[in-house]
Design a protein around this nucleic acid. Structure first.
Lengths: 216, 216
DNA sequence: TAGATTGTTAATCGATTAACAATC
DNA sequence: TAGATTGTTAATCGATTAACAATC
C-alpha cells in the first residue's frame, strides 16, 4: 500500500466500484489474469487512466504480467471497505423505499439494514424482506438504543430537511439520499451520496434532444 | 440564445437539473428575482460557476438585478427539452421497475411511458399505475407498432446485453439503465444514463470509512 | 533474451475560480 | 448618480492522456 492513499480524488473513487464490477465478472468467468489494456476495452476508459487510478493505492500489478484478477478484486473491496457492517436504517417505505430495501444487497456492500420506518400507521408491522416496518414515532428511541450510523432517505422532499437534521443529531454520519433535497452542504462532518433519479432522467432528456440535433 | 450552445460540457449539463430544482422551489415560494449569489448559497456551488454555466446558453440575467426566477426556470426547462414526449417503455416489472414506473413523473420530464414488459407470465395484465404489464414476448411487435425511442432497463444483469442489442435494433435511441451492465460504450449513436445504485452505495461505504479515519 | 505491461513522470487538456469592466 | 450584479476574460487548478524507463 502506498502513502498516497491519503487523499484520493473523488473522480477516482467513483470509478472504483466500476472496476470492482468488471473484476467480479472476470472472477465469475474464471479469468486469472488481466491488464489495464483489457480493462480499458471493457470499460471504455483509457489504459493509462486505469493504471493511474489503481496506482493511487499501491502497486497491485506486475510489469510484463498485468494484474491478478482475484487479488485486485480483493484489494478494491478492501479499499472500499465492503466488509464493514455499518448499521443502517431506511426511512420511507413507499414503492421506492421497499424496492431499495429488497433490491440492494446491503450486506455485501458494507452495510447492515437494521430498521425500516414509515409515517403511515397502516403499514406498521408489515414485513419488507425480513424486516418489519416501524412507525416513524419510534425513530428516536430506536436510534438511541441501536445507534445506526447510516440512513437511507426515501421520503418526499418536504420531510427531508427536518428529518435529516434530526438524524444528524441522533448520530447518523452517512446518508444515502433519494430525496430531491440536498443534504451535503449543510454539515461538513458527514458523508452523503445523492441519488437524484429525476435529475438523471432530465439529463437523459437533454442528451436525446441533442442527439436528434446532431443528426439533422 | 448564444452560439456557444453548440457544445456544452457534460459537467454543465449535469448541473442544469439541479438549477431547475432550486428554481422550482423558489417559484413555489413566490420569489420573483434571484442572483448567482443566492443560488450559490443554496447549492454550495460558486457564484462564478453558476454564472459561467448559465452563460453557455445565453444572457438570461441583467446586470445589477440578477435573474428573473420564472424566466430562468422556463429557459432551463426549454434547454433540457422537458416539453418533449419521448415515447418510453420500461422492461422489468420487479420491485425496482414498479417503483420507477410509479414514482417518476415521466410526463413532466420529457417522457411518455407507453408500455411495461416483464418475462414473468404470472404478472402479465397486472396494472402498474394505469399501464398493464405485457409479456416480454410481445416486445418486438409492440415496438414495431408504437416505435418507442426510450427504454428503461430494470432487468437483471444477465439479460441486459441481448436485450439492449435487441432494443437498439428496434430503434431505441435512449436508455435509462438501472442494470449493472454498461451499455454506453457499445454504440455511439445513442444516449445513455446509467443509474448504478450499487456503485453509489459502495461509494458511500468508502466515504464513511474515510470519515472515520480523518477523525482519528 | 525478447516481449509485455506496469509504475511514474511530463504534457495536455478541460473545468473551476478569480477578477473586473460593462451596464442595469 | 451610486450600488449591485451580470457577462466575460484571464489565471488557476485538477484530471486525463501520452510517453517511456523499469522490470517481470
Amino acid at each position: 500500500m502506498k502513502n498516497c492513499e491519503q487523499h484520493i480524488s473523488p473522480q477516482v473513487v467513483k470509478r472504483l466500484p466500476r472496476y470492482y464490477r468488471y473484476l467480479e465478472d472476470m472472477l465469475e468467468a474464471g479469468l486469472v489474469r488481466t491488464s489495464s489494456k483489457e480493462l480499458s476495452a471493457k470499460s471504455g476508459l483509457t489504459a493509462s487512466q486505469i493504471r493511474q487510478d489503481l496506482n493511487c493505492f499501491g502497486g497491485f500489478g506486475q510489469q510484463g504480467y498485468g494484474y491478478n484478477v482475484e487479488q485486485l478484486y480483493n484489494e478494491i473491496g478492501r479499499i472500499l471497505a465492503l466488509d464493514n457492517k455499518n448499521k443502517t436504517i431506511l426511512i420511507g417505505a413507499g414503492n421506492l423505499g421497499r424496492a431499495v430495501a429488497l433490491h440492494m444487497d446491503f450486506d455485501r456492500k458494507g452495510f447492515k439494514l437494521i430498521g425500516i420506518f414509515d409515517k403511515n400507521e397502516a403499514v406498521s408491522g408489515q414485513l419488507v424482506g425480513h424486516i418489519p416496518i416501524r412507525h416513524i414515532s419510534g425513530l428516536d428511541d430506536f436510534c438511541l438504543e441501536n445507534k445506526p450510523t447510516i440512513a437511507v432517505l426515501c421520503v418526499p422532499k418536504d420531510n427531508a430537511k427536518e428529518l435529516s437534521a434530526n438524524l444528524y443529531n441522533l448520530g447518523v454520519k452517512g446518508f444515502w439520499n433519494f430525496t430531491h433535497y440536498d443534504i451535503a452542504n449543510k454539515y461538513s462532518d458527514i458523508a452523503v451520496e445523492n441519488v437524484h433519479l429525476s435529475d438523471s432522467l432530465m439529463t437523459l432528456c437533454y442528451k436525446i434532444n441533442r442527439l436528434d440535433e446532431v443528426e439533422t
